[in-house]
Design a protein around this nucleic acid. Structure first.
Length: 111
RNA sequence: CAAGUCGGCCAGGCGGUCGCGUCCCGUGCGCGGGACGAGGAAAGUCCGGGCUCCAUAGGGUGUGGUGCUGGGUAAUUCCAGGUCGGGGCGACCUGACGGAAGAGGGCCACAGAAAAGGAGACAGCCGCGGAGAUCUCACUUGCCGCUAGGUGACCCGAUGAGUAUCCGCGGUGAUGGUGAAAAGGUGGUGUAAGAGACCACCGGCAUCCGUGGUGACACGGAUGGCCAGGUAACCCCCACCAGGAGCAAGGCCAAGCAAUGAGGGCGAGUCCUUGGACCUCCGGUCAAGGACGCGGGAUGACCCGUCCCGUUGAGCCCCGGGUAGGCUGCUAGAGAUGAUGGGCAACCAUCAUCCAAGAUAGAUGAUCGCCACCCCGAGGCGCACCAGCGACCUGGGGGGACAGAACCCGGCUUAUCGGCCGACUUGGGCU
RNA sequence: GCCCCCAUCGUCUAGUCUGGUCUAGGACACGGGCCUUUCAAGCCCGCGACAGGGGUUCGAAUCCCCUUGGGGGUA
């Protein structure tokens, strides 16, 4: 994943994004975005029980991180807190498909 | 060669590119380099322990667990060996059975006569008592007939017969049927009919003795009463074991609120002694101490007992406020590998060498190439009349499971594409 | 992560402790019929479940074990 400061790690940060952020959906994943005041962007990933067992949840989160790592330069300086939520179909997807889906969502979000 | 049994092992490999976590080194603080980085089940959380905190005079009653035997182990519901029962031709698998004649209670639906301490008579069989034929023969007699004979009446007599049958009383557990289960089996004696009522043999049980074994138990002998249903994964009895919670345990730091709280409610008292002050000087109020009682807490299931606190405030409930950040625990351990020795084995002892994940919105990933492995179908080549076969060659397509450490171990259970190795059994063939 | 609890017709439940009378009962829902001009209500009939597997027992929704799926608590 990216370096530590570019991750969303605190429970309160995640909760703030969930409460106040704007969301965009895709069959593979959901994107939630909220501006922060740090001058750089942070990314968090999550996968609920509905995605599958522990192996499948880890796999889903790794795919999301990998896609976010590749696209991070696109929005690094935008100063946003970004949450990526895995959906069940993500488990069977390829990394390139995930990256494409994330790019599409970021475009919709105006980045 | 075929079929099978048991045990062990692996969980594709190599190399690029881009990344992640921990530690170490260097640094121009931007970063660079190096080492290490999931499993056999990491899973389910079903057992057992370590570790941490809380508690810990004692006694009793419970609750939960275990249950052939002696070992192994830190410990177990685990493991290995033995014993017994069941299954299999066998290798082997599997189960527990402590106790139901050693305490007691409960339950055994339906069916069936009867379902549990010895009961019970539905049918059947038998005895006794009572009632009691049909029919046959003879006697008497009517009719028909020449005779032989036929047919009817009478209900006196005889026989089958006091029989069949019916009723009552009793005997019977052998037979039938019911059921998961009906109180040993076979043969005989016996009897009115029968019955372990008695006898012989067999099976099983109990007690005692002997031999072997640490023991469960096995083998042999004697005696006994003649035989005792199932269920304790129903209560229970016996023996043994178990204090409670869990790393979100626990410790430290920081931050923060009205700083264990400003509010509301509930909440257990009488007596005696002493003291001085006040009052309306009988007495009451106040302070200290004591007795009995009451309330609460600890003894983490309960009771007694013990200890502590409170009885103008212990404690409980409502309401309200704040933090949920960092460090530590955190990985060197019942540790791994090898050798030697002991033991049938599980396992143990000694020595040597080695250090091998520590994440915390939670690291071990993404992608590409090559080579192995498995499957599918195509072409060539070879064999073949065909069907087809092939361990050879060529180039394609597809597949690789179950699953992710979260304090750490030992087990169990469950999931799992496929592959390899070893030991053994049975059957067939060849030498 | 750890610790608990639960699972019965489409839904809510009774029965489970104390095994048999369970072919598993009830309510709502659903389907059909009667009634009504029609609808509703009412009456009658029907459909419909013991999460899965194994064991104990003559017999299991019930007792025991394993698995699966839900729910709750915990700084």
């Amino acid at each position: 994943m990216m370096e530590r400061r570019a991750r969303l790690r605190q429970s309160r940060d995640v909760q703030r994004v969930y409460d106040k952020g704007s969301s965009w959906r895709h069959p593979l994943l959901v994107l939630i975005v909220r501006p922060n005041e740090l001058g750089y962007s942070r990314v968090g990933v999550t996968a609920s029980r509905s995605v599958g067992n522990a192996v499948q949840r880890n796999r889903a989160k790794r795919l999301l991180r990998e896609a976010a790592r590749h696209l991070y330069p696109e929005f690094e300086t935008a100063g946003l807190d970004v949450m990526l939520i895995a959906r069940p179909k993500l488990v069977t997807a390829r990394e390139a498909d995930v990256e494409e889906a994330l790019a599409k969502l970021l475009k919709h979000a105006g980045l």
